[in-house]
């Protein structure tokens, strides 16, 4: 006797970066409401393997909402639209028996599709490589308490530093803008005394790389903030806009 929900999945299938993809429809039967969304996909995949069909490729790793691997747009919303929740933490009790669910990859020209729901987010890594760091060599760091950091600044920096780099902000934004991601890193380091020496060059270099990767610009729609699983706010974008203007005016 099968219990649980029966769902219809409309999933984007694409063999590789070069192939043309299309939607395919699958039935998910006897879905336990206690499953996470990705566990539901696991079960669908096991079924596909059983039948000798290619399972749906999707990224996931920690499955506890912190590694930032998972990346599907569920019913048009990155990560499925539950507040502060990644797809791996979204549970099936959010859906009803008989629902039809669309599952798509992140869509952005800077995130080319690798296969099915898997996209290439290395653009984010290159943005960090352009300046998302404090240039300190190992060793020779002063004592941890040598520089005082006001708690308020530290808390704000931590708010920004929580970004998991999943790319949902890009996926949600109608312009596929990466401003929320970039600004979170710029803010994190810009708010701390340790980040001051490189503050100007950091923001200039990271924004230049962001533009070179082909992300769109910010039109302040707030979609990124709404879907961010770590609730990174638009304040960070404003902070980065300010930092960039200062750096530009200084002529750095």
């Amino acid at each position: 006797m099968e219990k649980g929900m029966n769902l219809t999945l409309i999933v984007w299938r694409q063999k590789d970066a070069k192939s043309k993809g299309s939607f395919a429809t699958y039935a998910a039967r006897a879905v336990n409401p206690d499953m996470s969304f990705l566990e539901m996909l696991d079960v669908v995949n096991d079924d596909l393997i059983q039948r000798g069909e290619e399972p749906i490729a999707f990224d996931s790793d920690c499955r506890e909402g912190i590694c930032g691997s998972c990346s599907c747009v569920i019913n048009g919303v990155p990560h499925g639209g539950q507040k502060a929740t990644t797809a791996c933490q979204l549970h099936m009790r959010m859906f009803k028996d008989g629902d039809t669910i669309t599952i798509e990859p992140w869509r952005a020209s800077a995130f080319p599709i690798v296969k099915d729901l898997v996209v290439d987010r290395s653009a984010f890594d290159r943005i960090i490589q352009a300046g998302g760091f404090v240039s300190v060599r190992t060793g020779g760091a002063p004592d941890g308490n040598a520089i005082l950091v006001p708690k308020e600044d530290c808390d704000l920096a931590m708010d920004a530093a929580q970004c998991i780099g999943c790319g949902a902000c890009v996926a949600a934004c109608k312009n596929a803008s990466a401003m929320l991601f970039v600004s979170a890193k710029v803010s994190h380091l810009g708010l701390l005394p340790q980040g001051q020496p490189e503050r100007d060059r950091r923001v200039l270099n990271m924004v230049a790389q962001m533009d070179a990767e082909g992300f769109g610009s910010c039109t302040v729609t707030g979609s990124c903030e709404a879907v961010c699983p770590k609730e990174i706010t638009l304040d960070n974008i404003s902070r980065m806009n300010g930092d960039y203007a200062v750096a530009m005016v200084k002529g750095k």
Partner: peptide
């Protein structure tokens, strides 16, 4: 040394109001 190194990298360890770790 690890703590010092991480602080220098900008790891936002929790702070007290006075600014100490």
């Amino acid at each position: 040394s690890i703590i010092d190194q991480c602080v220098a990298q900008g790891v936002p360890f929790a702070r007290e109001y006075g600014g100490l770790l």
